[in-house]
């Protein structure tokens, strides 16, 4: 069947990049759906408000207002979890102690620049939160996002024209249409959504893609 991936399918594909022994920060949105697909993976989830070892959402009636994640939702602590202050939590991020961060984005460029915090010329009040810290400090940054905006315009572009969050930091892009690696030679298309061709994905993308010789369909 030919269809773009759902948000859950993107989260499931992204989860396959996460392996035993990793410390991972998951952003708000699609990344937040990833834990459901990490069953059996020995991973510690970092929440930047000061929780290392985030567990599942707190069941209704068992919410503790003193125990929340970065999205301000009541959660549980996983066995072996640890609490730290904000300064220590961001020292962990900035100091390169996390293995991976997964974030949403407005745009990603051909060189791995990411824009995910502000809209140009908008009258909205800006807010950056931990996004710049995460992309600056984490060795492996993965982006999960839809491949195109609602008007069809591409989100993977040669150069970002939205305000940048960081330069040259994205390593992997998982969209509803493709899995793309950012390499020193440029963007490599490794996987396409079932039923789509590399030519079609290229046409929906604002940057030149090199097609991997091992191109496959995303396993759903």
């Amino acid at each position: 069947m030919r269809a773009r991936l759902t948000r859950d399918q993107m989260a499931a594909r992204a989860a396959r990049e996460i392996h035993d022994g990793m410390y991972v920060n998951l952003g708000i949105g699609i990344p937040n759906l990833i834990p459901e697909y990490l069953t059996g993976v020995d991973v510690v989830i970092h929440s930047e408000n000061g929780l290392l070892g985030m567990g599942p959402m707190a069941p209704v009636g068992e919410e503790d207002p003193d125990l929340v994640n970065a999205a301000k939702q009541a959660v549980l602590v996983a066995p072996g979890g640890a609490i730290c202050s904000q300064a220590e939590s961001f020292a962990i991020i900035r100091g390169g102690h996390l293995d991976m961060t997964v974030l949403g984005a407005f745009q990603v460029s051909a060189t791995g620049d990411i824009a995910n915090w502000a809209i140009p010329g908008g009258k909205r009040v800006p807010g950056v939160g931990g996004a710049m810290d995460l992309v600056a400090g984490t060795g492996s940054v993965m982006v999960t996002m839809t491949h195109n905006n609602r008007d069809g315009s591409p989100k993977v572009v040669e150069e970002c024209d939205y305000p940048l969050t960081g330069r040259g930091c994205v390593k992997t892009i998982v969209t509803d249409l493709a899995v793309i690696r950012v390499t020193t030679n440029g963007l490599v298309l490794e996987e396409v959504a079932p039923g789509f061709t590399a030519v079609e994905v290229q046409a929906a993308t604002g940057a030149r893609l090199m097609v991997s010789p091992e191109l496959t369909e995303i396993a759903i």
Binding site: A87, F90, I93, R94, V128, A136, L164, T165, G166
Partner: peptide, 28 residues
């Protein structure tokens, strides 16, 4: 950035004249 906010507060607490942070380089 959130971590910068933290470190700037920490500088005030710890009597430091500032810190060098890589966060935000190349951004507005």
């Amino acid at each position: 950035p959130q971590g910068t906010l933290n470190e700037r507060i920490r500088c005030a607490m710890a009597g430091l004249g500032g810190v060098y942070s890589p966060v935000g380089v190349g951004t507005i």
